[in-house]
Amino acid sequence: MKVGFLFNHDALHQIRHTAPVIAALLRYRQVEVVVLTSSAAQEGEVRRLLGAAAGQVRFVSLTVGRVAAALDRVVRHVAPFRRIATLRENLPAFAALDVLVVPETTSLLLRDRFGLDRLKYVWIPHGAGDRSVGFRDVMRGFDLVLLSGAKVRDRMLAGGLITPDNHVVVGYPKFDTIDDALPARLFDNDRPVVLYNPHFDPLLSSWYAMGEAVIAWFAGQRDFNLVVAPHVMLAQRRMHASVEHRVVRWRRDVAERFRDLPHIRVDMGSEASVDMTYTRAADIYLGDASSQIYEWIVRPRPAIFLNASGADWVGNPDFTHWRLGEVIDSVDALPGALDRAVESPDRYRAAQEAAFAATFSRDEEPASVRAAAAIVARFGA
């Protein structure tokens, strides 16, 4: 059985959600693992995570022709043209597989548009958040869905996106890549560290309307350190458009006057922004719509959410994570929220612990081992 793992994205943030399963699958003699990547950076990251096990894997580099490459240079900051071109121009590589494991849904175009209907498709979502984009009709197209826990499973079942027999709860493979030891301190002082982690969604993100004001407030005080580490896709494009919300926003850069301050660290997409370095080392979370809040509550700590869109969020399942901290509607409310976070750090602990238990299934066996076993059980006979 040939099982392929596809990494076909502009950034590296999806890799840790499926790469650990590769090493676990190598335990099965009847399985040949093929890793398909669309960039040298993707391949390098997979090899680094696999270590010596990379020698047991066949790597395939997916390329596109000159025309597609030229068009991508024109539209890459607006639309994911290259991802689709990569699928279309490498059909033989996919046709040679029996099973394809992916952390996103675009790959279903291989079947729905390009005719590869013999191939079996496995989806491991890259995150366990609440945004409506994570619960779309396209998800009905997978042969097997491997989920992090009961929260996501129950919502998908209720929406008819999965069936009782085409999914397995396996846990969160990304956690298998994280060292239990706390990372090194981010600053050379003992001030609380705030992680500002805005999403890129043009409607829900606080970056476009509040981002500069948030950073400016932190720049003018000396009680807190600040790490500015948005979702890595924010910096990948200048223009962000949401077909779902019919909103388009232009991304502004962080002003130079904020970049050299000793109590502010700006990271627009390094490895540290995707390997949980900041979510594990900071003291207070400041965000909006990112699913990283669920990685944050591995260790319960204060969280603050910026309601930049004026959302009517109470009781809305798309904002379930906003029950895990204080929600504020303006930057003017930020100082008071930070003071309350410092004074009452355990205010939302019970809610966070309950949310973590519902979101992530934990077991003696690592999630990657459970995921590999589910794949072999379903397709390996």
Rank of each mutant, 00 (worst) to 15 (best):
residue 167 H to Q: 11
residue 3 V to Y: 05
residue 200 F to P: 02
residue 307 N to S: 06
residue 117 D to E: 15
residue 300 P to H: 03
residue 236 Q to A: 15
residue 124 I to P: 01
residue 161 L to W: 04
residue 140 R to W: 06
residue 36 L to G: 03
residue 341 A to H: 01
residue 194 V to Y: 01
residue 44 G to H: 02
residue 117 D to V: 13
residue 311 A to H: 00
residue 333 A to N: 07
residue 50 L to F: 05
residue 162 I to W: 01
residue 261 L to C: 07
residue 39 S to Y: 04
residue 189 N to A: 12
residue 222 R to G: 15
residue 288 D to F: 09
residue 303 A to C: 08
residue 181 A to I: 10
residue 80 P to D: 10
residue 13 H to I: 08
residue 163 T to D: 10
residue 226 L to M: 03
residue 48 R to T: 14
residue 336 G to A: 11
residue 14 Q to G: 05
residue 171 G to W: 00
residue 144 L to H: 02
residue 223 D to A: 14
residue 117 D to Q: 14
residue 81 F to K: 10
residue 17 H to A: 03
residue 345 P to E: 09
residue 310 G to T: 12
residue 321 H to A: 15
residue 51 G to T: 09
residue 40 A to G: 15
residue 179 D to F: 00
residue 59 F to H: 09
residue 343 E to K: 12
residue 296 W to L: 08
residue 243 V to M: 12
residue 85 A to T: 10
residue 348 Y to E: 07
residue 186 L to R: 05
residue 102 V to A: 05
residue 49 L to A: 09
residue 85 A to K: 01
residue 228 V to K: 05
residue 169 V to S: 02
residue 262 P to N: 05
residue 91 L to D: 00
residue 161 L to P: 00
residue 94 F to P: 13
residue 102 V to Y: 01
residue 341 A to P: 06
residue 241 A to G: 10
residue 189 N to S: 13
residue 223 D to L: 08
residue 163 T to Q: 08
residue 317 P to V: 04
residue 250 W to R: 14
residue 331 V to Y: 03
